[in-house]
């Protein structure tokens, strides 16, 4: 008859790991010592025990020390990145100031050159610049403010991501304002030109590649009462109400007596032709703005 092993013989591994007696080596060596079979020479034994123990101690300490190091490295790396971001931002700000000054000078030279040779061209150029967004403008208008839901401001990581204002919301508001008859629009100080885009990159919103942060303020120049009345009839207004009711996004439409919108500065030159003075042919503008301009161009160029 086959000898039967213990009932849980197939669980040797688990028994071995969980219920094992002390490491068998200790028990065996103790038995050997008791039986007097240990015959190593004492001096040699002491020597290699000491050496081995020192090496092992050094190794474990090195391991523990080098495993703790990454924390310092991470902190340093972060500090370095923060420093680079700050310097980058300072550089961007100073370059923008330079661009503004240069644009002012170019515009001054341009108007000086045209004023004498072709005042009609200068007048239509002024109008185009107001409409296209190159020139700074000021006048009465409307300000629409949007902000993320209170939950996002208090607890950014855990709140519902749809309670943030998205690029599409701002696009709708801008389109609504244009439809209501705005003459110039800027989002958080970034003037919208005829080539501007409001796009979303992940959770961030960018206007013409410049990031904008909440709270968002969309300013439009036009007659405040008319603008507000027409805006409330657009789908943008309905959307703002729905956003407020459904996601808790805070929005407000208010008339403002005096708004000042910066110009977009010098535009990119795409096409150039030889200028023929108006004595030779008509230079009347072919397109006029559809509403009487209630905005007056500020001194040429950007107002800082």
């Amino acid at each position: 008859m086959r000898p039967t092993g213990p009932a849980d013989a197939s669980m040797t591994l688990l028994n071995e790991v969980m219920k094992r007696p002390l490491d068998p080596s200790y028990v065996e060596v103790a038995a050997r010592k008791a039986a007097g079979l240990d015959t190593d020479r004492r001096g040699v034994r002491v020597a290699w025990v000491l050496v081995l123990a020192t090496l092992l101690g050094a190794f474990i300490t090195t391991a523990v020390v080098s495993l703790r190091e990454p924390k310092d490295g991470v902190v340093q790396a972060r500090a370095l990145l923060v420093d680079r971001i700050t310097r980058g931002r300072a550089q961007v700000a100073s370059l923008r100031a330079d661009t503004a000054t240069m644009s002012q000078r170019i515009a001054a030279l341009q108007s000086a050159a045209l004023a004498s040779s072709d005042p009609q061209l200068l007048a239509s150029l002024n109008q185009y610049e107001v409409v296209s967004g190159a020139a700074a403008v000021s006048g009465p208008g409307v300000r629409v403010t949007l902000d993320d839901a209170v939950a996002i401001r208090q607890n950014p990581d855990q709140a519902d991501p749809s309670s943030r204002v998205m690029a599409t919301d701002i696009q709708e508001v801008v389109n609504g304002l244009w439809a209501a008859g705005a003459e110039a629009i800027s989002v958080n100080g970034e003037r919208l030109t005829s080539l501007s885009a409001v796009r979303g990159a992940g959770l961030a919103i960018q206007v013409d590649l410049s990031p904008v942060l909440p709270p968002y303020s969309v300013e439009a120049i036009g007659d405040p009462a008319t603008l507000r009345a027409r805006f409330s009839r657009t789908s943008a207004s309905t959307r703002l109400e729905w956003l407020g009711a459904r996601y808790g996004i805070v929005s407000n439409v208010a008339g403002v007596d005096r708004l000042q919108l910066a110009g977009a500065g010098q535009v990119t030159l795409l096409y150039a032709g030889v200028h023929v003075p108006s004595a030779v042919g008509t230079k009347a503008p072919t397109a006029t703005p559809t509403f009487a301009t209630s905005s007056t161009p500020a001194p040429k160029g950007n107002t800082p």
């Binding site: 025990v49 000491l50 050496v51 020192t54 101690g57 050094a58 474990i60």
Partner: peptide, 10 residues
């Protein structure tokens, strides 16, 4: 003793 020496050296 060897271990302690090793740790200190490390």
């Amino acid at each position: 003793i060897g271990l302690v020496i090793g740790v200190v050296a490390g």
